[in-house]
Design a protein around this nucleic acid. Structure first.
Ligand SMILES: Nc1ccn([C@H]2C[C@H](O)[C@@H](COP(=O)(O)OP(=O)(O)OP(=O)(O)O)O2)c(=O)n1
Ligand SMILES: [Mg+2]
Ligand SMILES: [Mg+2]
Length: 933
DNA sequence: TAATTCAAT
DNA sequence: TCCCATTGAATTA
């Protein structure tokens, strides 16, 4: 979180409205007045009467000498250059060319307008100064005082008292302190925010059980049906929701109402603190709102796009339509289309599609850390290892396998480099990730960095879930029948079964039948010799079992105290040789401490690598680069014994010459448990990253951060209510919800082709029924009412490179937290049948036929009790499952997709236009002030 | 596919 | 004593 444009840069301000002179790179007078950046003076809520000039002066004075600032200047120069080129292109356009594009856009516009569905009532809800508001709730003495959530390095958000001083999200803390010396800093506690968010979501679900969360603090609700069935209006619903949120959580929020999501979202900011604003579903009203709207207010148009468009004479949304020919000529079709949509006020009118079974709910997963400058190979490798370990933890906790590894480096000059490799095989474990990251790091070696990150993407989509058989299991004749049982159908008619659950189960059945089409028909003789496969299937089981949680809050990746028993691997060459010949392949690639192995060692190691190590898909390219750019580096995929030797030698020769005799850091890992076997044990709730004492107190509860359900089952793998994986989304509590031992997040993703969305269904009431109480006392009311679906839908995108811009909605969560968990199939998890059957898993654990959870033998009785309790509770509350897993339609898809918005004739009006135009006026006033400065 | 840029939280 | 972390989309070569 806390990121924003800290526009530095001085010279050249591309701002004139006519396509004319956009840049004037005169010699800077070193004067902040020429500073064109938006510099924290964006028209965010609460920035009304701020002395923007003063803020700019302060920020400028404090940062002008910093490397960060220099880098920002460099970037600004680039965008200025980009603008210049674009203007040149614009000038070169013939009138006929533009006319042609204009005509094409006319057709586009006509089509868009004709396809607009104005019959829906969308609502966007966004909490006010969310993190800060939650902190104030927790510590009322903070109220009224300028306060910021975050640290001296970065502020997540600030309360409105602080905003008066110009303090806002994404501002570095030290600047905030300068602007307001009395500023109080509060360390972020995502647990609180997640809980607060869950409380609000429980309310949202009452108005739209399928609502989509846009982040922790905002959500999109389609209240069309609610309005209809309750004979009310969007505005009335907004007032009701705001009241409920206020009374139920003590927090305030703002609402935007409009015929589509885009308009609703933009409307939310109109009367930001504790207010609401409605845009009627009529063309005339939409135009009145959109036409004078500064383009910067549109989600997807950021600082750079604003500058670029401004240089073309586009300042407000109406300009997007007016200059349609020019825009179509200069930008990509995707961007141009987006502009046209915005110009007309067209947005999505439908919920995202449910996420599909077996699909991975995200595009990538990553970890990155900023630290004091590092340059020695030993330090770099160590850092890389820490990151790899953390990433592997996250990856495995979600059962992901990816084949593209990306290394990210940020030099002390703030220049960012990324290096990626796509492998043939999909990986997930620490060893593979570390090794591949190291390979990417090696060529960059003489380097001094302040940040390193690793990302894994290109996930395997054939996500085999507990309730599903793996191919290998299926092919194994004897193991097949015992290992997998089709979802049970019994009792369906006798017990309570929500419709959604029933549908999920039906899907599971279909899936099962689809994947086992002719099992009975197929003669056993046809089975290919099923490999004794201890491999894949088992690995997958283990990975799931290994679900460990992690701490997302700013915290060192490696903190021995926080990282219990799974520190496997000796991180030194010496240790490796002692322990296990070629078991730790990455060691051979170590950036330090290398000594020529014996011939037999090399042979064994290289042979093993040939067998096991994933190789890059583009092995030739790899070779090439090895020969040309990095003559010293030899591709490993075709590596001979000698090449391995050379490879290692080159590392030393070129990258870490002084480290040859350098300090032996091996001891740094000596204290880590060396028992590799432990690494694959199913961790107890006090497992890795949870922050809970590794061995000390006995675990009491796992609390799902998605729906707040708590379980005292020691080895639960998924939330029994909302089905989210017990990974980073779970928190561990020692007591009655009092001392949370780890901060983490939740969020369930969903993915789909162009865009992604995440969602997770959930059900409230569980933790209340179990006598749990939240830290903040939330859920008191909300939880009673049941419900609480959640999910997160993020949006972003933007125009990169030269043209582009494509809003597109994307999903994500507020900063650090998230790391979404793939929304799981849900199979028969909520079946309200208390009878549990057990299936023995390949790893010796037992799988519950009801929920699919893997449990150790001793935990079975307890687990059965749990299902009984769940059944009883469900009967009481008249249980419900809110929300379905959805997946996103990005704007493009929604656009081209034949499945355009379905039209409904009934128009639910109910809006006061007088008030809306009034609010618009003040809104624009603010915006203008900001623009003028 | 790789690398970079932009955007949002 | 000094500018985050995580994710996704789009462009370009
Ligand atoms: N760059 C950012 C922006 C936001 N956030 C976090 C802190 C915010 O409290 C929360 C919600 O973001 P909003 O943009 O909704 O901002 P606020 O809710 O804080 O303020 P507002 O009243 O303007 O909505 O996300 C963050 O960490 N970093
Ligand atoms: Mg907010
Ligand atoms: Mg928000």
């Amino acid at each position: 979180m806390a990121h924003g444009e800290t526009t530095p840069v001085t010279k050249s301000a591309p701002s004139t409205s006519t396509g004319g002179a956009a840049q004037k790179s005169e010699e800077s007078q070193n004067n902040w007045e020429q500073w064109s950046g938006t510099v924290f003076t964006n028209a965010k809520a609460g920035m009304a009467g701020v002395d923007k000039d003063k803020i700019k002066a302060v920020v400028y004075e404090m940062s002008k000498e910093s490397p960060h600032f220099k880098n920002e200047e460099r970037k600004q120069v680039q965008t200025v250059e980009r603008i210049r080129k674009m203007q040149d292109r614009a000038k070169a356009l013939s009138t006929s060319e533009i006319a042609g594009h204009t005509k094409a856009m006319d057709a586009k516009l006509a089509k868009l307008k004709a396809g607009m569905d104005l019959t829906r009532t969308w609502m966007h809800v966004d909490m006010d100064a969310f993190f800060a508001a939650v902190e104030e709730l927790d510590e009322p003495s903070l109220k009224g005082k300028p306060m910021a959530v975050g640290g001296i390095g970065m502020i997540c958000t600030a309360n409105y008292a602080a905003r008066k001083y110009g303090i806002r999200s994404a501002m570095p803390g030290f600047i905030g302190r300068r602007l307001c010396p009395e500023l109080v800093f509060v360390k972020p506690n995502f647990q609180k925010y997640t809980r607060a968010a869950a409380a609000t979501r429980a309310i949202f679900a009452q108005y739209d059980p399928d609502f989509e969360a846009g982040s922790l603090d905002e959500a999109y609700l389609d209240v069309t049906d609610y309005c209809r069935s309750h004979e009310t209006t969007g505005e009335a619903v907004a007032a009701e929701i705001r009241r409920q949120v206020r009374e139920g959580t003590g927090l305030t929020c703002s609402c935007g109402i409009g015929p589509n999501r885009l308009l609703a979202k933009v409307a939310t900011d109109m009367r930001k603190p504790d207010g609401q604003y409605a845009i009627p579903g009529e063309h005339s009203a939409i135009s009145r709102f959109v036409d004078p709207l500064p383009i910067r207010k549109v989600p997807g148009i950021g600082k750079v796009s604003e500058q670029v468009l401004s240089a073309l004479g586009v300042e407000v949304c109406a300009d997007l339509v007016a200059k349609r020919g020019l825009l179509a000529a200069l930008f990509s079709p995707i961007s141009a289309d987006f502009f046209m949509e915005v110009g007309l006020g067209v947005g999505r009118t439908q919920h995202s599609a449910p996420v599909e079974d077996g699909a991975v709910g995200r595009k990538g997963i990553s970890v990155e850390r900023t630290f004091a400058a590092l340059s020695s190979p030993a330090d770099l490798e160590s850092k890389c290892s820490e990151l790899a370990e953390k990433l592997a933890e996250d990856v495995e906790s979600e059962g992901l396998k990816g084949r593209t590894v990306t290394l990210k480096l940020k030099t002390t000059n703030f220049e960012v480099r990324t290096r990626a490799a796509t492998l043939v095989r999909h990986i997930s474990g620490y060893d593979d990730i570390f090794r591949e990251a190291l390979k990417l790091l090696r060529p960059e070696l003489p380097i001094t960095i302040r940040l390193m990150g690793i990302r894994l993407s290109g996930f395997l989509e054939t996500n085999t879930e507990p309730g599903q058989r793996t191919l290998s299991a299926f092919l194994k004749p004897d193991a097949a029948p015992a290992a997998v049982t089709p979802p049970k159908r019994r009792n369906w008619n006798q017990t309570f079964m929500p419709r959604e659950v029933r549908e999920c189960i039906d899907q599971e059945m279909e899936k099962y039948q689809a994947s086992h089409p002719s099992k009975e028909a197929e003669p056993l003789d046809n089975f290919q010799a099923a490999p004794p496969t201890p491999s894949q299937e088992q690995d997958e089981q283990l990975q799931l079992a290994e679900a460990a949680n992690c701490n997302t809050v700013p915290k060192p990746v490696s903190d021995a105290a926080q990282r219990p028993s799974q520190c496997r691997v000796a991180h030194s060459q010496a240790d490796a040789r002692q322990s296990n010949g070629g078991a730790s392949q990455h060691l051979e690639l170590s950036l330090r401490d290398w000594a020529p192995p014996t011939a037999s060692q090399v042979l064994a190691a290289s042979q093993q690598q040939l067998d096991q190590e994933p190789v890059r898909a583009d092995s030739r390219a790899d070779l090439q680069s090895a020969e040309s750019e990095h003559p010293g580096e030899v591709s490993r995929d075709v590596g001979t014994c000698q090449s391995d030797v050379d490879s290692c030698r080159d590392i030393l020769d070129t990258a870490a010459p002084d480290e040859v005799a350098g300090p032996d850091l091996a001891h740094a890992w000596d204290e880590a448990p060396s028992g590799l076997g432990d690494a694959h044990d199913i961790p107890a709730p006090d497992g890795p990253g949870s922050g809970a004492p590794a061995s000390a107190s006995a675990p009491k509860h796992w609390t799902c951060q998605v729906c707040t359900y708590s379980s005292n089952h020691p080895r639960i793998l998924r939330c029994d209510i909302c089905d989210s994986v017990r990974g980073t989304r779970w928190d561990y509590y020692l007591g009655q919800g009092a001392e949370a031992s780890s901060g983490s997040q939740h969020a369930v993703p969903a993915r789909d082709s162009p865009t992604s969305r995440e969602i997770c269904r959930s059900q409230g009431g569980a933790s209340a029924a179990r006598g749990q109480r939240s830290i903040l006392g939330f859920f008191s009311e909300a939880e009673r009412k049941g419900a609480a679906a959640s999910g997160v839908e993020q949006q972003s995108g933007g125009l990169a490179g030269a043209s582009q811009l494509g809003p597109v909605e994307r999903r994500s969560e507020d900063r650090g937290m998230e790391s979404a968990v793939p929304a799981q199939p849900a199979s028969c998890r909520d079946a309200a049948d208390s009878s549990v059957e057990w299936e023995r898993g390949v790893d010796g654990s037992w799988r519950c036929s009801q929920c699919g959870a893997s449990v150790i033998n001793e935990g079975r009785a307890e687990h059965e009790d749990y299902h009984l309790a769940l059944l009883l509770q469900k009967a009481e509350s008249g249980g419900m499952l809110a929300g379905k897993i959805r997946q996103a339609h990005d704007d493009k898809a929604a656009h081209k997709g034949a499945s355009r918005d379905k039209k409904r004739k009934n128009d639910l009006a109910g809006h006061s236009r007088s008030s809306s135009s009034q609010a618009l006026t003040s809104f624009l006033k603010k915006a203008n002030i900001q623009q003028q400065s």
